[in-house]
Design a protein around this nucleic acid. Sequence first.
RNA 1: GCCCGAGUGGCGGAAUGGCAGACGCGGGGGACUUAAAAUCCCUAGCCGGCAACGGCGUGUGGGUUCGACUCCCACCUCGGGCACCA
Length: 855
Amino acid sequence: MFGSPVPPIAGMSTELDYDPIAVETKWQQRWAERGTNTLTDGQLRDAERPFYNLMMFPYPSAEGLHVGNMYAFTGADIYGRWKRLQGEQVFEPIGFDAFGIHSENFALRMGTHPMQLIPSNIRNFTRQLKRIGAMYDWNHTVDTTDPEYYRWTQWLFLQLFKAGLAEKKQAPVNWCPSCKTVLANEQVIGGACERCGTVVEQRTLSQWFFRITRYAERLLDNLRWIDWSETTRKAQENWIGRSEGAELRFTVASPWRASAGSAAATAVDEARAYHASHPENGGYEQHLEIPVFTTRADTIFGATFLVLAPEHPVVAWVTTPERAGEVAAYRERAAAMDLVTRKKTDKEKTGVSTGGYATNPATGERIPIWIADYVLMEYGTGAIMAVPGHDQRDFEFARQFGLGIRRVVAGPGESAATPLDEAYIGEGTLVNSGDFDGMPTEQSRHALTMWLAERGAGEPRVNYRLHDWCISRQRYWGPPIPVIYCDACGTVPVPESDLPVRLPLVDNYKPDESGISPLARAEDWYRVACPQCGGPARRETDVSDTFLDSAWYFLRYPSAHRADTPFDRELTKKWLPVNMYIGGEEHAVLHLLYARFITMALRDLGLVDFEEPFLTFRKHGLLIKEGSKMSKSRGNVVIPDQYIEKWGADTFRTYLMFLGPYQEGGDFRDQGLQGPYGLLNRLWDSIVPLDRLGTDPAPEALERKLHQTIRKVTEDIAALRYNTAIAALMEYLNAVREGGRKVNRAEVEPMVPLLAPFAPHIAEELWERLGHEGGIFSGHNWPAFDEDKARDAAVEVAVQVNGKLRARLMLPAGTGEDVARAAALADENVRRHMGNLTVRKAIYVPDRLLNLVVG
RNA sequence: GCCCGAGUGGCGGAAUGGCAGACGCGGGGGACUUAAAAUCCCUAGCCGGCAACGGCGUGUGGGUUCGACUCCCACCUCGGGCACCA
């Protein structure tokens, strides 16, 4: 029956049982030997169908590869393998984002120096990554802690510096008292440190910033055309936070002048500084204008007071001597408050009057100036015009302190005299607004702005929530910011020829409370000669944010070997922008925003030819375990190794993709692995031993199902619907093996490439056993489907009577309504439900459904 | 409070406005086996019925439609993001 055993061919496997570990070990070795997954620099240069398939590179933690990493990587790898089976030349690199607070904190906890710990983590991570069966190009990896990498990170800083996009400025910044460093706005989640969860303090420090705000408009506009997951786009849109309104200026009616030598000398200094940065206001001591940002210029007639943020530089200037004590006390209290408490919205409004007055440019009235912590220095101008009638916060404040409330908008059914129990936020028509009475609010916003503009009291303005990117970190484990401070020459960039500025080996790298970087302890490192004048100078001792390392790594991969340039012009042109980028949603406003900004800046500097780095981005979902979030404290974190040992990487990969829609995540259950294992095992069993395979052509019904399956798997993978693609393969194999029938080669052979993206090792093995040479991924081996062959000859048509299912009829595909109707009316059950009623109307969806409406 | 998602069998999850529950796990029964694994067959939303079949059923309430898991309105619950943003 089985024929005579085939004599073993040299190098061919003859094992009859599916042994995942043996198969996987064998193929991983072969891939490495053959260089299956690596591109030579020549291939990179000459590729005709380049496809850059990118996944967010990992931070190599000491805990090792987490199943979350593997989930992300596998989903991305499947896409890359699929593209490759379609004949594209796929570049799929991997690297390590190994600088940063997270690594450093871990090293501190372990008591091991990061310069020792990180390389060992990377080795361990690499070992794990090699087992998951991804087609990484191990010839083109990056490690952000390698001086040959970070020299270019520093180079990047210098390019931005030269372009005026990097500036050092004194600014209120987020300080994490636990990590003992400043954080970018994007790294503060709900007022707490993204890394450690500690409530963040506010400090005023001099820090390096990248002027990402200059790109706010373009970062926002491009979101309209880049092909990104909708949720990610939305997150960026919200983060950038564009709002259209006006800047309006209120003249201080009674500027109080500090007498020389008084305690208010600082106040005068602050006011001078304020004027220096607002030359448009005219000179100091001429008059003083306080600009406010508002989206509701239509309510200007209702602005009955001004509120400044406690930190606002003109506070001391407008405060009268009688109020100075209370104002100072309030400012101190506000400064001492942590951000979470300060930004709580449910607490009672607090504030104090400065005693100063300003003039409402619309009404000419004198209105009091207050300070309150509900006004934030970091948004808008740090000052607001308070319109208690039409802003709930201002309303509460006015109630609290007995300030005037005036209605200037009448909603539907309201008049100028309708009392206000709470702020009326909605639209309506203007009242109590002079000549503008009766004008609809939407229209009056512009009209009033223009009216005020004519009188020099304001102009239209767009405001963004986005802040400049603070990149200074008072930590050790990062690339030193390549700047030297010289008493004579000031801030001097390190000459490019002196890069990299190596991170020195410092034994005591622990951060401290002072806000001064650990590198400041390495005196023989930071004392240098000024590159300009040769005089004594000192290096910047802060390092840069990890997110700078990862903001350009995708540019480095193709040029990973190049010592002369960060990214080769021609290679970059060929391979970028990235064709497909897959990663986690948690980086929507961090990495993804920064990478876009850096790319735009490089484009403006003429260094790359595109301004969006990732044409297509897809976020993957999150895995949970047995219904609850995976976390170390719950002890339910899945470590891939043990599963790979038990089931093999192919089963594990396939299961991860099967357990739910990739872009939404899913629930990991140990029991679930059995299903995908069964698929692989049954496919193996259907093909091995080869001489048991039939050589007949597939019966028509199976051939049809095969073509339907090819179509479905192709479409589903393209849309990252991996779970349903796998389900289709299972369904097809069930049909092939139904009733234990003898399987023909023509029925199962095409399944091998269809399964290959998910389970590449077993696919290679079966492909080889089927007699193919050179490996399944060596060329265009993805099967094509034939629409004609995929078409069903007979279809089941549902018959409804008044919308309820009463029969199912097998009819030839393409049956016309008349024939279908006749068949339906011949059905006994249909007739029974119709009784003696007549058909009033029939809805016929060919090949699907016939609904008879009777009455 | 605002902005996104999502609520479907015992469970994970499928369904261009057209047969709800594909596929898988788990369960029950059976075949093969000394036995187990693997494999195969049958069964399986809930209620009633021996069955044919009927009724009910996609978080809740309404609406649009011949027909709604799918579209619209209101609400509830869960997850995520933002949050005194002027």
